[in-house]
Amino acid sequence: MSIRTDRLKPSFKSFIEAQPMFFVATAAPTGRVNMSPKGLDSLRVLSDQKIVWLSMSGSGNETAAHVLQDPRMTLMFCAFQGDALILRVFGNARVIHPRDADWAQHYGLFPDYAGARNIYVLDIDMVTTSCGTGVPEMSIQRRRAESEMVPWYDDLGEAGVKAFWAKKNTKSLDGFETGIFADPVD
């Protein structure tokens, strides 16, 4: 039986914390809708109506661009092991960049990952569940982010990561600014 509520129940929080990955979906008022898988130890439930998650550098920065245009965000969690369940968390988010005053406060909630690029604070306005029986049961073989992505950003160093951002993370696929730097980079 599906549930619809405006906050996370304790069982939802436990379910979220047990998941090895989640998905984030955002969209600007125009252009493409984006959905991305996220992993690592990168999400914290702060309360029954607030989630914070850390975004690592990647080949694009759609979520940041979308949130600057329209704060709507949906997080989806799927049970890949155990009882079937899909949990969706809807709300409005804001993006925090490393240059922002509240970066240190929020970044301190997470491990110190080279390549950390954005933090999102999601204020929850709706939570829904669905059966999830269409999701296959799977086991995690290896966490590639820990063995491939994080060491790669470590090797780049801070200057290399910022150069990567300048090349890959300043604009969305639709040309929207991501705000990764205080001023647009040409």
Score class of each variant (00 low, 15 high):
residue 1 M to W: 15
residue 2 S to T: 15
residue 3 I to T: 07
residue 3 I to F: 12
residue 4 R to N: 08
residue 4 R to G: 07
residue 4 R to K: 08
residue 4 R to C: 05
residue 5 T to M: 12
residue 6 D to F: 00
residue 6 D to A: 02
residue 7 R to M: 05
residue 8 L to Y: 04
residue 8 L to S: 03
residue 15 F to A: 02
residue 15 F to T: 05
residue 17 E to D: 06
residue 17 E to R: 09
residue 18 A to W: 07
residue 20 P to H: 07
residue 23 F to H: 13
residue 23 F to C: 05
residue 23 F to R: 04
residue 24 V to P: 02
residue 24 V to W: 00
residue 25 A to K: 01
residue 25 A to Y: 01
residue 26 T to R: 08
residue 27 A to I: 02
residue 30 T to I: 10
residue 31 G to C: 10
residue 32 R to C: 15
residue 32 R to D: 12
residue 33 V to N: 10
residue 34 N to R: 13
residue 34 N to T: 14
residue 34 N to Q: 14
residue 35 M to C: 13
residue 35 M to K: 11
residue 35 M to L: 11
residue 36 S to Y: 14
residue 37 P to K: 12
residue 38 K to P: 06
residue 39 G to A: 08
residue 42 S to G: 11
residue 43 L to W: 02
residue 43 L to V: 12
residue 44 R to E: 11
residue 46 L to N: 13
residue 46 L to H: 15
residue 47 S to C: 14
residue 47 S to W: 15
residue 48 D to C: 11
residue 49 Q to S: 13
residue 52 V to H: 07
residue 53 W to Q: 09
residue 53 W to K: 10
residue 56 M to H: 15
residue 56 M to C: 07
residue 56 M to Y: 12
residue 57 S to I: 14
residue 58 G to Y: 09
residue 59 S to A: 14
residue 63 T to K: 03
residue 65 A to V: 09
residue 67 V to P: 00
residue 69 Q to P: 05
residue 71 P to D: 12
residue 73 M to Y: 01
residue 75 L to P: 01
residue 76 M to Q: 04
residue 77 F to N: 01
residue 78 C to N: 12
residue 80 F to I: 07
residue 81 Q to S: 12
residue 86 I to Y: 04
residue 87 L to Y: 01
residue 88 R to N: 06
residue 88 R to T: 03
residue 89 V to P: 00
residue 89 V to F: 01
residue 90 F to L: 02
residue 91 G to F: 00
residue 91 G to P: 00
residue 92 N to P: 00
residue 93 A to Y: 00
residue 99 R to F: 05
residue 100 D to I: 05
residue 101 A to V: 07
residue 102 D to N: 13
residue 108 G to W: 00
residue 108 G to H: 08
residue 109 L to V: 07
residue 110 F to G: 03
residue 111 P to R: 03
residue 111 P to G: 02
residue 112 D to T: 08
residue 114 A to K: 02
residue 117 R to G: 04
residue 127 V to A: 01
residue 128 T to N: 02
residue 128 T to I: 01
residue 129 T to H: 04
residue 130 S to A: 04
residue 131 C to Y: 05
residue 132 G to P: 01
residue 133 T to W: 03
residue 134 G to P: 00
residue 135 V to S: 04
residue 135 V to R: 03
residue 136 P to D: 04
residue 136 P to T: 04
residue 136 P to W: 09
residue 138 M to F: 07
residue 139 S to A: 12
residue 139 S to K: 13
residue 139 S to V: 07
residue 140 I to G: 02
residue 140 I to N: 06
residue 141 Q to H: 12
residue 142 R to L: 09
residue 143 R to D: 03
residue 145 A to S: 11
residue 145 A to C: 14
residue 146 E to G: 06
residue 146 E to L: 11
residue 147 S to G: 13
residue 150 V to F: 15
residue 152 W to S: 13
residue 153 Y to N: 09
residue 155 D to T: 10
residue 155 D to Y: 09
residue 159 A to V: 14
residue 160 G to L: 14
residue 162 K to S: 10
residue 163 A to D: 15
residue 168 K to Q: 08
residue 169 N to L: 03
residue 170 T to L: 08
residue 170 T to C: 12
residue 171 K to W: 06
residue 172 S to A: 10
residue 172 S to I: 10
residue 177 E to L: 13
residue 177 E to G: 05
residue 177 E to V: 02
residue 180 I to P: 01
residue 184 P to W: 09
residue 186 D to I: 08
